[in-house]
Design a protein around this nucleic acid. Structure first.
Lengths: 225, 225
DNA sequence: AACTACGGTTTGGTATACCAGATTTAATAT
DNA sequence: ATATTAAATCTGGTATACCAAACCGTAGTT
């Protein structure tokens, strides 16, 4: 029934694409917090069956974007400024822990690689290349994850970062934080090179963002609308 | 086909139970790392259809117990001592972060509640009541999660703790750590009452377990078999 | 004998049908 | 008129059937 959109042979699980699309709509506010996500309606809307829709909803549930209730429709979670700030706070906790591990465990070669990423970034900042900055920024953090020598920690961090990426990009653009971010990276790198894990952790926590200030900022945004 | 085991009206999603059962078998080594998990075979074995089996496998995938490969059977991940130690290390990172937040944010009433849980534990330890200790131990940590004032952090911690619970119980039993654990709780509580977040965090990290010593211990276990 | 090509088998991905819990609505009794 | 309950309906949970991709084995060619 209902024409298959693409021969069904997309090479990638259908559910993943559906999840991303729904995620985008939730973030964009097309689907609002509290809205019910009826499996049949969604299936009809996307021209697929309920099975991949259920899959997609489970994924969004894991990502805490929606709430799955037994025998009830799933509903979109309210993503308030506070909620978001809490997620960033957890990210800052994990990142600072990672950098603390990294400062203790990175070898000389890894530290040099981190430094080279950092120095490469300098030119990008001067040029005001936002996309380039995003890319190198990610590399800088990822080099630290690797340096922490804990693959599970790395997975958790990458997952959380991916989840928060859209919001972070939005924040960074609004704040035009490129230069400051680069300076903060310098402090972190310096602490790592000195082998001072605790200082690196503190700097990282500050870097990911002061949660209190974040809440203030986002609330302003909310009322501004 | 195949007789329904219990009228199907268990009030709880079938998949959850299946996931727990498979999890236990993986932990117990009945299903070994590298083994393929065929959906049809599992469905037949448990007397259910493939649908809840798939659900269960997804859950185990999220928990990193198995690896889901597109168009291939899922296989059991190798859960080495190092892997486990890495997860415990992440737990220690999150716990110490939580207790640091809690030390800054708990109000007087919350601190008193934490202390009362701690003091109630003392009698249990003297009596050598392991189950009672497990329960109060969980309450102690949960009171700290709540005190951290970050529901998202609490969710993450409870999830990770649930995942690691079987291993932790096993470790605690083997090590007979009840009394030492209680003493460590005392140190943490003291730091919280003094409002010294950093010290509380350090103590917590030590409490969850020294990852290096954990690896040593578990490797001994492995060769002992 | 070794390599390639083809066909069958296995197995995950998707669609559809049915069941049971939950909600809503309407009818009946007080 | 209100409250209580029963029937209809909505919706998620489960079962089954079909499709296509990946794997495996065999046969045919060089």
């Amino acid at each position: 029934m209902t024409a298959r959109r693409k021969t069904v042979s997309d090479d990638k699980p259908l559910a993943e694409g559906l999840a991303r699309q729904l995620e985008q709509e939730i973030i964009d506010g097309v689907i609002r917090p509290g809205d019910e996500l009826d499996e049949r309606r969604l299936a009809e809307r996307f021209g697929v069956s309920r099975t991949p829709i259920r899959e997609a909803l489970r994924r969004l549930g894991v990502e805490r974007l929606i709430e799955l209730r037994p025998r009830r429709s799933a509903i979109v979670r309210s993503l308030t400024a506070q909620n978001l700030a809490q997620m960033f706070e957890v990210l800052s906790g994990l990142e600072s822990f990672a950098v603390e591990c990294a400062a203790r465990r990175m070898n000389q070669q890894q530290i040099e690689q981190l430094r080279s990423i950092h120095e490469e970034t300098a030119a990008i900042v001067d040029a005001g290349d936002r996309n380039g900055f995003d890319r190198l920024n990610f590399q800088f953090h990822q080099a630290i994850y690797r340096g922490a020598g804990n693959p599970y920690l790395m997975e958790q961090l990458e997952g959380l970062r991916t989840k928060l990426a859209p919001y972070r990009r939005w924040l960074l653009r609004r704040l035009d934080r490129m230069r400051q971010s680069h300076n903060e990276h310098a402090m972190i790198l310096e602490a790592i090179e000195a082998g001072e894990g605790a200082r690196a952790a503190t700097e990282m926590r500050r870097h990911i963002c002061d949660p209190d200030r974040l809440v203030d900022f986002m609330m302003m945004e909310q009322t501004e609308r």
